[in-house]
Design a protein around this nucleic acid. Sequence first.
DNA 1: GATCCTTTCAAACGAACGTTTGAATTCAAA
DNA 2: TTTGAATTCAAACGTTCGTTTGAAAGGATC
Lengths: 227, 227
Amino acid sequence: MSLVVEGTRDSLIKAAIGVFSAKGFEGGSVREITQAANANQAAINYHFGGKDGLYREVLKASIQAFAELSPLDMDRLAAVDGPQAVETFIRTQLKALNRRDQLGRFMRIFTWETLSRSQVFTDFLAEEKLPVFAVAEIVVRKFLPAETERADLWIAIFWLLSQVETFIRPERLERPPYNLKIDQALIDRLGERLSEMTVAALSAWGSHGNADQRRSFSPASQAAPSP
Amino acid sequence: MSLVVEGTRDSLIKAAIGVFSAKGFEGGSVREITQAANANQAAINYHFGGKDGLYREVLKASIQAFAELSPLDMDRLAAVDGPQAVETFIRTQLKALNRRDQLGRFMRIFTWETLSRSQVFTDFLAEEKLPVFAVAEIVVRKFLPAETERADLWIAIFWLLSQVETFIRPERLERPPYNLKIDQALIDRLGERLSEMTVAALSAWGSHGNADQRRSFSPASQAAPSP
DNA sequence: GATCCTTTCAAACGAACGTTTGAATTCAAA
DNA sequence: TTTGAATTCAAACGTTCGTTTGAAAGGATC
């Protein structure tokens, strides 16, 4: 396969990442993607079998990108204390606010799936493990009692993931009524603020404990992760 | 205007609330709405001037619904202490998890607008004030230093609003990997948890204060609110 | 009953959608 | 140079979209 061919295929994936990030899978059109990639519409069916196949490739690319680019190493997080783990986690996620951040676009694609999950994404989750859940579990376990009910553990993971999820769209913070200017200073300030607040919140949870404590299950060992 | 006519118009609005809640403005189709309302497609143009006009009516209906149904009274919130205000705020918003909650559907419509803001919604925000921002300001001000920089105040408001935003879709919590069972017990437990954590987080912010404190602006007095 | 206005209807429009198709181009190997 | 495979192309397809249209039905008034 020549470089030109690799170029078309990669261009389509790259264009699709951008379009799906901005408009979601349903809202992003084949025509828009092929225009952005300078490719023929038929190329999507030729290379990927169709729009579904292209999206599947984009989701696979996200796994690879997170593995290569994300500094959220589980061993490193396990080795530090709670507050440090939270700060690393929060600041890493906030990098998505930087429009040039590659991982940010994948994260924004995932947010569309939280509102209305597509079949492609459902199938994708059934066969791939997103490491972000295991990472989040490591972080929250540093605060929660050792024997925490499974449902509570999932709530804590969900909550931790949600702490940054709403912040990863720069345009949302820049528009009225917030009118915030997204620059490195604000991102740093957000990282500091959110980390402090997250530590305080999780500490409050940990200090109250669970009156009704049952045998716990590790969510990280579950077969089907999801964002 | 006869009852039959009112019936069609109201049926369309009711159906549109459901469809836009599930699929957003772009994703919700005129055909799906008219089918759900047992009305003719042309009725949308006749009664509302088109899909945009229908959506505008839905957004107006949301303002009315929040005014009538939401117990978040600013005077009452102002009169209680911080933790009580937070708990009232959080538990009120979590009612959206109850599928029969009318306000929940409007809240879910708003979440679509956080990912990709429609022109109709932009215009709507330019002329209507959503009281939820003023309410959120009252709550966070109970924790923040009196002279808090305007950008920080907006960040705190954004953060408080985001604490429940990700929780208002029951299907999201029910699906893998969370697999939580949404019932009144879980909603109550969530209310307790999130309230505790929110108080702790905001208290942490308040206790650290601002080293660099400038003249503050009240966001609630801004001309252009948004969700 | 006739007239006028309001409302609803079935059908169709033009545009955009994802996909398909036969032809053309490009590339690699013999 | 020839041949075959891979890739791209322009055009068209059937479907769905929001909107429009003329006709029909319903309701109110005279």
